[in-house]
């Protein structure tokens, strides 16, 4: 077992891997929030109590969402490797990991946002329709303002989920905290690094959760 000083652990291992992890989380969170939001709006629009109910479209989207969510992330990431290579030009590095992370997180995010939309009382939607709001206006002027705090809560849950997935991506060549914990900790039998990285993960989760709670309280 190689022994590392705290200085090396902090500046050569933890900081760089934390940076990579945060970049992966940030990019995947932004992309999956956008696509997840689009997906949730579609699910809500075509759902039974939606603004334009369409059983065919809803069933198709529902099957796709459930299909992707049924994959364990590691299997999903491996099975879409050719697509990842086609889109990002590589299968190694944090940039390449953003694609499978986004694919995995989008249905999760979509489902969470869809449930937020479903929370809204039917009367509120009817009230909006009754004064002549368009579907676009109902979504952006009525529903989103009404469910924003719930969306933030759901978003926080998803970002923490993505953070967890980045550690698995790390084992597939993405780098980051997962890769460091595996290489410098687990495979090198170095508990010091291993548990330090666990604490770093805990701090990151806590920071995301507390930030989310703060935003929730501000906008509620």
């Amino acid at each position: 077992m190689v022994s590392y000083s705290w200085e090396v652990i902090i500046f050569k291992i933890i900081f760089p891997s934390m940076g990579v992890t945060l970049l992966m989380v940030l990019c995947a969170a932004v992309l999956s929030s956008f696509f997840g939001f689009c997906l949730s709006v579609s699910l809500f629009l075509f759902g039974k109590d939606g603004l334009s109910p369409n059983e065919k479209y809803y069933t198709a989207l529902n099957v796709v969402v459930s299909f992707i969510r049924s994959f364990p992330f590691i299997i999903l990431a491996i099975s879409i490797l050719p697509l990842t290579r086609f889109i990002t030009g590589s299968v190694i590095g944090w940039q390449s990991a953003v694609f499978p992370l986004t694919v995995a997180a989008t249905p999760f995010m979509g489902r969470i946002f869809e449930n937020c939309f479903k929370e809204v009382s039917k009367d509120l939607i009817d009230a909006a329709r009754s004064f002549g709001a368009t579907h676009f206006q109902i979504i952006f002027k009525i529903l989103i303002p009404a469910i924003l705090p719930s969306m933030v809560n759901g978003g926080v849950l998803s970002v923490i989920q993505i953070l967890g997935l980045t550690t698995i991506a790390g084992t597939l060549g993405a780098g980051g905290i997962g890769a460091s914990a595996l290489i410098y900790g687990y495979q090198s039998f170095n508990d010091k690094i291993m548990y330090t990285l666990v604490i770093v993960m805990f701090v990151l989760v806590l920071a995301i959760q507390l930030s989310g709670d703060y935003i929730y309280k501000r906008i509620k």
Binding site: S121, D123, L124, D126, A127, A128, S130, F131, G132, A133, T134, Q137, K141, I142, P145, A146, L148, P149, I219, K220
Partner: peptide, 26 residues
Amino acid sequence: IGMIFQGFSLIERKTVYENIVIPLEC
């Protein structure tokens, strides 16, 4: 044609003004 409901149908986290202004913005 205006309409009012039993359950009021307001956006609870918005102010009185912000609720009333929605149809005008639409």
